[in-house]
Design a protein around this nucleic acid. Structure first.
Length: 563
RNA sequence: UGGGGUGUGGCGAAGUGGUCUAACGCACCGGAUUCUGAUUCCGGCAUUCCUAGGUUCGAAUCCUAGCACCCCAGCCA
């Protein structure tokens, strides 16, 4: 991937409260070497919100000479799958980051975590509770009323040890008992009201198999895993802010080898989409989309399939900033990053999405010629190619109007336009079918304008893209729009009801310049005047399929809309 | 009626008592250039920083009191 120099990716100059903190910790010796981690739970695919966390964690590590690891928070075998682990690794790599060493897993530390739970019990800081889930909820109190202590709270250390051992050995059913930290049932912070730290789950784990039937909760695994790994700055999102006292309490009461600190920043929200795993999972399971990598999905794999470059995602994230205030970003910012990058690197080709046949009456029948076309006006190194021209070509239906207003710079009866890299043509006749639909145009061309310029200096207002009927390749092209019609679908009680029925439009019989066939999945290209496109994995040589990654800015569309 | 957070233009975000009649980016609105109505380029876009008091020669920045919004009552993360 050849990235441009003129970018705004995060750098050593980037400032935000987290980087400021890291700088000062490094400066005063609080931190010797920065260690961060990206800690996904493998219960779904990564989305662009995760990209913010990935760029932050890996970004600061490289900016400040530290390391960042990938660690799976796999403490709940009921929801986690190997498929997700594989997809997450692929997505992080594709985004352009390399984690330090092998991927880590909270499950790698199950032995230690178990020993630490025992340690808590031995110090009178944890107890086995026989209350069931519903009872625990009742005893917990409410947001405004303190909780009550469980009748099992003051069991002897010996009894707790015995019970916890039997929990581990499978003596009890799921939910029969839990291990709780003994903290404070009257705390205003509900996380401190004797949180459950181990629960019984008789389910095989993707990595540890049947070795365990008790699993630590997030709170009991996360901070300790950080400590084991020597993480210095544990970066997470705002909703964990009130878990921090518990995070600290556990680290304080356990013989951990290091003292990590948690810092919270605002998660990314985007308008016109949903960014919660629960909702994305629902879209996939209920088949509202073709899968996790549907190009309309805000997942990393969906964006990749649509043709969004990793660079643009990183650039986008860098422009967001890291703060503690809730924010919802407009997708127009991502669009801008995509266009800015692709404009520089994508080779131009011609393709006609909604073909209208044009016959050039004064062009000799049976003849064709090769014309030279520039591959990328933004990059001389991209060179030139040759395109075939002949008597019959296709142009875009939108590029012709029978009754054209003066502001319309394209083709109309009697009007002259330029065919890109080819000739000036003038429309002489419009042919319709019985239904009155325009089915063909007749034009004449001016042989003196070969290449696209008139020797007499005459100017033309419009330049049209076209494809020669002689060698055009038929293809399917998929156009995408916002997945939802509501700017904040996540706020709707039934977000599925606000799905955009026009989020996908499939066009058949599109006419492509044949050189497009040599592009591979993952290559960016611009269809001149239409937008950036990418070959879809569904594509075959016999039936090529392209996705529209992003439209070009379209002032004409705007003029029409405002008219 | 508890605890934890956040409030700067349509969106994101700088700003940490004086050079703030408040950076920058996106969006938007002009206008120039252009063989993509693209790109590029110029110019415009908050006398005001949630509100109200107060301190000060001076406040978005300090104090006080309000208000608004977000998160927390999973044996999810």
């Amino acid at each position: 991937m050849n990235e441009t120099e003129n970018h705004t990716e995060a750098s050593a100059e980037t400032r935000d409260f987290i980087r400021d903190r890291i700088r000062s910790d490094l400066a005063d010796g609080t931190t010797e070497k920065l260690v961060t981690r990206f800690p996904p739970e493998p219960n779904g695919y990564l989305h662009i919100g995760h990209a913010k966390s990935i760029c932050l964690n890996f970004g600061v590590a490289s900016e400040f000479g530290g390391i960042c690891r990938l660690r799976f928070d796999d403490t709940n075998p009921a929801k986690e799958e190997q498929e997700f682990i594989d997809a997450i690794e692929e997505d992080v790599r594709w985004l352009g980051f390399e984690w330090d060493g092998a991927p880590r897993h909270a499950s790698d530390y199950f032995d230690t975590l178990y020993a630490w739970a025992v340690h808590l019990i031995e110090n009178g800081n944890a107890y086995v509770d026989d209350l069931n889930a519903e009872e625990i909820r009742e005893y917990r109190g409410t947001l405004t009323e303190p909780g009550k202590e469980s009748p099992y709270r003051n069991r002897s250390i010996e009894e707790n040890l015995d019970l916890f051992t039997r929990m581990k050995d499978g003596a009890f059913e799921d939910g029969a008992k839990v291990l709780r930290a003994k903290i404070d049932m009257t705390s205003g912070n509900i996380n401190m009201r004797d949180p459950v730290i181990y629960r019984i789950v008789h389910k095989a784990h993707p990595r540890t198999g049947d070795a365990w039937c008790i699993y630590p909760t997030y709170d009991f695994a996360h901070g300790q895993s950080d400590a084991i790994e020597g993480v210095t700055h544990s970066l997470c999102t705002l909703e964990f802010e009130d878990h921090r006292p518990l995070y600290d309490w556990l680290v304080d009461h356990l013989p951990v080898p290091a003292r990590p600190r948690q810092y919270e920043f605002a998660r990314l929200n985007l308008t016109y989409t949903v960014l919660s795993k629960r909702r994305l999972t629902q879209l996939v399971q209920e088949r509202h989309v073709a899968g996790w990598n549907d190009p309309r999905m805000p997942t990393i794999s969906g964006l990749r399939r649509r043709g969004i470059p990793a660079y643009a995602i990183r650039d986008f994230v860098s422009r967001l900033g890291i703060t503690k205030s809730d924010s919802t970003v407009e997708p127009a910012l991502l669009d801008h990053c995509v266009r800015e990058y692709l404009n520089k690197v994508a080779e131009r080709r011609m393709a006609v999405l909604r073909p209208l046949k044009v016959v050039i009456e004064n062009y000799p029948e049976g003849e064709t010629e090769e014309l030279e076309a520039v591959n990328n006006p933004e990059d001389d190194a991209a060179g030139k190619r040759t395109v075939k021209f002949g008597r019959e070509i296709y142009i875009e239906q939108d590029d012709f109007m029978e009754d054209a207003p003066k502001k319309f710079f394209r083709l109309a009866p009697g009007r002259e336009v330029r065919l890109r890299w080819a000739y000036f043509v003038t429309c002489t006749d419009v042919i319709k079918n019985d239904a009155g639909d325009i089915v063909e145009l007749r034009c004449t061309y001016d042989p003196a304008t070969k290449g696209g310029d008139a020797p007499d200096g005459r100017k033309v207002k419009g330049t049209l893209h076209w494809v020669c009927a002689d060698d055009a390749v038929d293809a399917e092209v998929r156009l995408y729009d916002h997945l939802f019609t509501d700017p904040a679908p996540g706020r709707q009680s039934d977000f599925v009801a606000t799905l955009n029925p026009e989020s996908l439009e499939v066009l058949q019989g599109c006419k492509l310049e044949p050189s497009l066939m040599s592009f591979n999945t993952g290559d960016a290209m611009q269809f001149e005047r239409l937008g950036y496109f990418a070959k879809d994995p569904d594509s075959t040589d016999a039936s090529p399929v392209f996705n529209r990654t992003m439209t070009l800015r379209d002032t004409w569309a705007k003029i029409q809309k405002n008219a």
